[in-house]
Amino acid sequence: MDKEFLYDLMAEFEKRDIQELSFETEQGSVHLLKAGAVAREAAGSSAAVPVAATSETVVSVAGAGETVAGAGGELVKAPIVGNFYRQPAPDAPYFVNEGDRVSKGQTICILEAMKLMNELEAEFDCEIVKVLVDNGTMVQFDTPLFEVKRV
């Protein structure tokens, strides 16, 4: 997806009185959820999942994985431009380390964009093979962040 489109979408989402937004395109899907909102399990589902109140917006972008030629792994790429953080606070442990097994929906990093802390969640169960970006590094749209292997 185009990074300018994502930036505009995030800015408009924050201005509006909506709590959750999901949609799909040929390039992937986007799910935005405001802190303290109640997430729906599926479109039209009456079951709700409470979300902890924080100052973060959760960004989940499907289609971010890309096969690495000859390695049997996949790359998790940045869905937006921002600063890459491996931990929620400077004194906190990393979300994930190389060799960790990660469950679908688990936070793997934070991308700070436009003063918003956007949690990037695993789109599938996987093992972190390699962390490709240093903590605190500014990344561009589509920058490979992690090499992962599905489990």
Rank of each mutant, 00 (worst) to 15 (best):
E24P: 00
E121D: 02
E147M: 10
G70I: 06
C126V: 02
D125T: 00
R101E: 14
S45I: 05
T143L: 02
M117L: 15
P90F: 10
L21V: 08
M117D: 09
I18R: 02
K15R: 14
V139D: 07
L132C: 10
D142N: 12
F141C: 04
D100H: 08
A48W: 01
A113I: 05
V59Q: 00
V139P: 00
V151W: 06
T107H: 04
T67D: 12
R86D: 03
V51F: 13
E41Q: 06
D125S: 01
K149A: 13
R86V: 05
E41P: 00
A64W: 00
M138Q: 02
A43Y: 13
N118R: 04
E14V: 09
A43G: 07
T54D: 14
V38Q: 13
V51E: 15
S60K: 06
V151K: 11
I18F: 01
T107F: 01
F23Y: 14
V129M: 13
T25Y: 09
S46R: 12
G36H: 12
V49A: 03
V61D: 00
T137E: 12
L111I: 11
V129Y: 04
Q87P: 03
E20C: 08
V148I: 15
L75Y: 10
L116E: 06
D100R: 03
A48F: 03
V49M: 12
N135H: 12
R150E: 08
S60A: 07
T57M: 13
T54Q: 10
M114N: 13
V151E: 15
V30F: 15
P144H: 10
E26I: 08
L132S: 09
E24Y: 04
V133A: 13
A64D: 00
Y94S: 12
V139H: 07
E56L: 02
G105N: 13
G65D: 04
K77S: 13
V151T: 14
K15V: 01
H31D: 07
L21I: 04
G65M: 04
I110S: 02
V139S: 04
D17P: 00
Y7N: 10
A92E: 15
F141Y: 13
L111V: 08
G82C: 01
E24G: 09
A53R: 08
I110A: 05
E98K: 14
E14R: 11
S45D: 15
I110V: 14
L75S: 05
R40P: 03
P88I: 01
L120Q: 06
I80W: 03
P50F: 04
S22Y: 15
A92H: 10
G36D: 08
I110L: 14
Q106G: 01
E123I: 09
K15H: 01
F13S: 10
R40L: 11
D100A: 06
E24T: 11
A42L: 14
T143R: 02
V59S: 00
Q19R: 09
V102T: 07
F5G: 04
S29D: 14
S22Q: 12
R40F: 06
L120D: 00
C126G: 02
Q140M: 07
V49Q: 09
G63L: 05
G70E: 12
R86M: 11
A48L: 11
G65R: 06
A47H: 11
S55D: 15
V81N: 01
V76N: 01
A122V: 04
T107C: 08
H31A: 08
V151I: 15
E56M: 05
L111R: 05
Q106R: 06
A35Y: 08
S103V: 05
R101L: 12
